[in-house]
Every structure is written in structure tokens, then in C-alpha cells.
Design a protein around this nucleic acid. Sequence first.
DNA 1: TTCGATT
Length: 288
Amino acid sequence: MWTNVCYFYFVFFPLLFSLGHSLGYGFVNYVNPSDAERAINTLNGLRLQSKTIKVSYARPSSDSIKDANLYISGLPKTMTQKDVEDMFTQYGRIINSRVLVDQASGLSRGVAFIRFDKRSEAEEAIKDLNGSKPVGASEPITVKFAANPNQTKNSQLLSQLYNTQSRRFGGPVHHQAQRFRFSPMSVDHMSGVSGMNVAGSSSSGWCIFIYNLGQDADEGILWQMFGPFGAVTNVKVIRDFNTNKCKGFGFVTMTNYEEAAMAIASLNGYRLGDKVLQVSFKSSKSHK
DNA sequence: TTCGATT
């Protein structure tokens, strides 16, 4: 029995694979098998922002389950996720599947991903289905191994960015490229000094100021509010030294700029209890 | 009560 619970998003592939970003999955180890089971039962299928997370037991780590992800293109636009799964299921156990849809029209792009449990299963599917025509289709489909996001996507993305920017602006590229990689570090470089020169940022994350917390607010509520937006490294409720009551404000530090910005946009004006919260990046004054 | 830091 595996007490290793694997978290990963159904929406795995649309994630941005730029440097420092989550690959969209993670692992949690439980001491107690029943706790692992409870985590699966309560969290699997939970919607977090625009995503639905999948929580299941982790498969044993092994070379045989690596590189078992397939990229399928040229599919009839009428084929649904289930249709694609039905076509591939005879080759092995499907771990995850997705049909890409056009963001504007909502129609299928004729592209899908299928992750098999075993690489050998994926190989068999390629052998059989690459170049074949689904029933009723006029054109053959392409079935191949999906590009490994770790190795290829980053370098492709970066070189794409650089090419695009140099064509458009014709000048030194690194200033523009910074726009696409908002990390505290890169902003520090932009200002030329490390520390708190840009609102909310420091080398250790993005600090967010929350005002109008109730007297009884605690750290737990901050974790609950901000956690769903992404990586939270620290929360703090500021309390009166003597009374130990919250002084009405607190701080949350988040690792990634985009997630912090989304949290602020979503939670500013949020009604917590009978109070309307003000949420913003921490002002840059004060602090060492 | 509107931007900390008892680590």
C-alpha cells in the first residue's frame, strides 16, 4: 500500500514551463495510510482557481514509467477526450489525458496528450496508431512522444522570446526579456540593487499587505486565503504585544509574482467576516 | 487601529 500521495493537475500541459515555475504536480508523504486515503477522498477533483486537481496514490518511481507521454495531432475536431481515450486504452493504462481546445472558440485543436503508465505501452500505441486514420477521419493522425518540458520547453521558450524581442526592437534583448520572467531576482536586477526597491518584492518573495483583519484573525486564515493562489512561504498576523489581539493587519509572502498578483486582484475587497479586506503589495518603505 | 520582525 502506497502512502505516497501524488498531487497533479488535470490541466498539466497548458502550464507555463518557464524557469522557476511549478510543473504542476507534487508529492506528499503520509505517515498514516488512512490519512493519505482521506487526503485523496477530500481533495481529488477539488477546483483551485481555473484548475481541477487530481490527487491519487503515487506510482512507484521507476524508469519504466518515465517518458510515457504521447502527443497526438491531426485528430478530427469532433473527437472528445473520451473518444481519444477509447482509441488508446487498448494499449495500456492511461494515467492522464487531455484534448487541447482553442481558447477563443472553445473548439478542439485536434491535439491531445495521453500519458500511459508505462513507456512500453506508449511505444506500442505509436507503432500502431501513428499515421493511422481514426474512423470517419480523412487525414491520418500523428502520434509521437511528447516533448519533455524539463529539457526542451525552457530553452525553446527562451530562444523564442529572444528572437521575437530582437526582431521587434532590434536592440539589447535582456531588458525586454525581463518582462516575461517576473521574479523578485529579476526585478532586483532591473533596479540595480537588491532589497526592497520595488513594492512588495525582495529576494525571498513577494510580500503582500493585508489590512482590516478582525481581532481574532490567525495565521491559518491567511494560509487558507492565499494558499490556493500558489506558493506561500510565510504568513504573519500582527498582534498587540500585550493583548495578543490582531492589530488589524498581516503579511503574506508568495514566491511567484503572477500568483501574488492574482491573489491580490482576487482578495482585495474580499469580505472576511464583517470586514472588507484591503490587499496590496507591501509598501516599499520601512524594513531594514 | 492602515505596512512587522520575541527567530
